[in-house]
Design a binder for these strands. Structure first.
Length: 336
DNA sequence: CGGTTTTGACCGGCGC
DNA sequence: GCGCCGGTCAAAACCG
């Protein structure tokens, strides 16, 4: 959308992923994923700023950035200025930087990854949203089926339905992560069924479409690898789960959405992980990161103060709650 | 055998 | 109107 966006970081997503363009201005923090027998570490970078849709410039300002100060590895060349897009519900939350810390946690598993992730919550139905996904409306299915059912009904009412569905669809919050990892499909604790794969224009890497397998849960996610940086996986979540994380998932990770959701016996590995993972942020932390790393960013407290002074704290906390709901497994529960 | 993945086809939106 | 593109469907294949 804006030129600024395109200029940043050379992440030139041609279509709906312009918002991924910036992996510059982000914070990082550590995440350690364990999937089955294998484990891996990853760095997430959450960057909402300059996400390709009409972000008010004010939100792109350094002040707007909520630099969470999560684990900024000196070795990392990626330092970000995360910011939040209030209007679009865009989140620039955290960056995970990886290796060393995660290694400690996982136990020498090798520093797999640096995750850059953008967290974006976009409830806004704004038409100017760069991240509009043309074919991405569930209403389509209905349309198709309706047509197939010989439903040659009155066009007007159908149109109304279409519009309605479209609007509903657009309101669905989305969260995007850029994750530097070798694993294509990041485990997030939920069960997903792949329902499609498409080649991405200008990219050698396909995009995969997943749907939550839980009944009546219409959460979807798209996963694709950045062609600019093949080590970066872009995951976009759409909608929110209306159920806790399945506890019997053998590859489940992290915790559930509530304390009671978490069943240590069924996810021992994660239990260990969580326990062992250093967490230094307080409940007041804007972005309480799952279990990610410690604050090693020397500017962390200063940044926190700045955030508070700028009155971002509450608003972001609210949005964070939404984000947490959408992606609970990533956000280590702070409730205890 | 049930659940998941693969993959070609289909559909709608959009730009030209 | 046409072609391109993103998203989804659904049958077949695969897997535990």
């Amino acid at each position: 959308m804006s030129n600024e966006i395109k200029d940043l970081n050379n992440y030139h997503y041609t279509s709906s992923y312009n918002h991924y363009n910036n992996i510059n201005n982000q914070n990082m923090m550590n995440l350690s994923y364990v999937s089955g027998p294998s484990s891996y570490n990853a760095n997430m970078i959450v960057s909402s700023s300059q996400l390709g849709f009409d972000l008010p410039s004010k939100n792109l300002s350094p002040q707007g950035a909520f630099d969470l100060g999560f684990e900024l590895s000196p070795s990392s060349s990626e330092f970000f200025n995360p910011s939040i897009d209030q209007d679009n519900g865009l989140y620039n939350a955290f960056n995970y930087n990886s290796c060393h810390k995660s290694q400690e946690v996982v136990g020498g598993g090798g520093c797999a990854t640096t995750i850059k992730s953008e967290v974006r919550v976009s409830p806004s139905p704004s038409s100017s949203e760069a991240d509009h996904h043309p074919g991405d409306d569930s209403g389509k299915i209905m349309k198709k089926r309706e047509a197939g059912d010989g439903g040659e009904d009155d066009q007007p009412s159908q149109k109304v339905v279409k519009t309605k569905k479209k609007e509903e669809k657009k309101k669905e919050p989305r969260v995007s992560f850029m994750t530097k990892t070798e694993v294509d499909h990041l485990e997030d604790g939920y069960r997903w069924r792949k329902y499609g794969q498409k080649a991405v224009k200008n990219s050698p890497y396909p995009r995969s479409y997943y749907r939550c397998t839980t009944q009546k849960c219409n959460v979807k996610k798209r996963v694709e690898r950045s062609y600019q940086d093949p080590t970066v996986v872009i995951t976009t979540y759409e909608s929110q789960h209306n159920h806790p994380i399945p506890t019997n998932r053998r590859t489940a990770m992290f915790s559930g959405t509530t304390a009671t959701d978490y069943n240590p016996s069924s996810t021992p590995i994660f239990s260990d992980l969580i326990i062992n993972t250093p967490r230094s942020f307080s409940n007041d932390d804007l972005f309480r990161v799952p279990y990610a790393s410690v604050n090693v960013n020397p500017n962390y407290h200063q940044q926190q103060q700045q955030q508070q002074q700028q009155g971002f704290h509450q608003q972001e906390s609210d949005q964070f709650e939404l984000l947490k709901e959408m992606f609970p497994s990533v956000f280590f529960k702070q409730e205890h």
